[in-house]
Amino acid sequence: MRYLLDTHIFLWWLVDQPKLSEATKRVIAASDNEIYVSAASTWEMIIKSAIGKLSLPPSPQGFIREQLRINRMLPLPITIEHSLALATLPMIHKDPFDRMLIAQTIFERMVLITDDPVINSYPVTVFSAE
Rank of each mutant, 00 (worst) to 15 (best):
R2Y: 09
Y3Q: 06
L4D: 03
L4P: 02
L5P: 03
L5C: 05
F10E: 10
L11F: 11
L11Y: 09
V15P: 02
V15W: 05
P18V: 12
P18E: 11
S21M: 06
T24Q: 08
T24E: 07
V27A: 14
I28V: 13
S31F: 08
S31C: 08
D32E: 14
D32G: 05
D32A: 13
E34V: 08
E34R: 10
A40Q: 01
W43K: 04
E44H: 00
I46M: 12
I47N: 01
K48E: 09
K48L: 08
G52L: 00
K53P: 02
L54P: 01
L54V: 06
S55M: 11
L56A: 07
L56C: 08
S59C: 10
I64C: 00
R65N: 13
R65Q: 11
E66L: 12
Q67M: 14
Q67W: 04
N71A: 11
R72V: 14
M73Y: 13
M73A: 12
I78V: 15
I80E: 10
I80L: 14
E81S: 12
H82A: 12
S83A: 15
L84N: 10
L84C: 06
L84P: 00
A85T: 06
A85C: 05
A87H: 10
T88Q: 13
T88P: 00
T88V: 04
L89C: 03
M91N: 14
H93L: 07
H93F: 08
K94E: 10
D95Y: 06
D95V: 08
P96R: 13
P96W: 10
F97P: 05
L101N: 07
I106W: 00
I106Y: 00
F107R: 15
F107M: 10
F107T: 11
F107I: 05
F107S: 13
L112V: 04
L112M: 04
D115V: 04
D116N: 15
V118H: 07
P123K: 06
P123E: 03
V124R: 10
T125Q: 15
S128N: 15
A129R: 02
